[in-house]
């Protein structure tokens, strides 16, 4: 698990885990509303940068603007999305029936950490949440469609691709 605090938002702790070969996504999906996590299908996560850019957006909206959804974790899914349609964000970024690779994200107030960990819920193989481990699970075509990237945009590297998603995340709904 990657556990971090964003320097501008020291009141919040951010925990991220990555799981491969997840076997119980259907079960998780049924209780997703009650669980204090954001379960993200790893096929739409390219890089740490993309995920943490969304976290930054959630924390700025929470602190200076307003949240558009009911919880900080549903807001994480919205923050990943390039549009403000909440249903669409859930469908595209949330856990799906057949999800086999999951990014599990949690934002908690420091001092209020829950005892429940992603490991207690997800049946799968935990690997480190890093760019190398995301490389094999993301789907560029799906992401191009979701983020409406022009065909003429052909970055040479994964970082170059990731940057376009970061840009979209900063600008959603503004």
């Amino acid at each position: 698990m990657v556990s971090t605090i964003l320097p501008q938002f020291p009141k919040f702790q951010v925990n991220v885990s990555l799981f491969h070969d997840v076997q119980n996504s259907e079960d998780i999906r049924l209780q997703v509303a009650e669980l204090p996590f954001a379960f993200v299908d790893a096929s739409v996560i390219v890089s740490q940068e993309q995920l943490f850019a969304a976290v930054y957006r959630v924390l700025t909206d929470l602190t200076y603007n307003k949240l558009r959804t009911k919880t900080i974790h549903s807001e994480c899914l919205l923050a990943l999305s390039p549009t403000s349609n909440i249903g669409e964000a859930f469908n595209r970024f949330g856990i799906q029936q057949g999800s086999t690779d999951l990014v599990v994200l949690q934002i908690v107030e420091v001092g209020q950490e829950s005892t429940e960990s992603a490991n207690d819920i997800v049946k799968g193989t935990e690997v480190e949440f890093n760019n190398d481990n995301l490389l094999h699970t993301y789907n560029e075509q799906t992401l191009r469609k979701i983020y409406k990237l022009d065909n003429s945009f052909q970055p040479k590297t994964t970082e170059g691709f990731s940057q376009a998603l970061v840009n979209a995340i900063q600008l959603r709904g503004l």
């Binding site: 930054y56 700025t60 200076y64 603007n65 945009f153 052909q154 900063q170």
Partner: peptide, 17 residues
């Protein structure tokens, strides 16, 4: 950023508020 061969700084974050 998305236009081929144009060089501008990359955006890391933007807090418009």
């Amino acid at each position: 950023y998305q236009i081929k061969d144009i060089h501008v700084p990359k955006i890391i974050a933007s807090d418009v508020f």
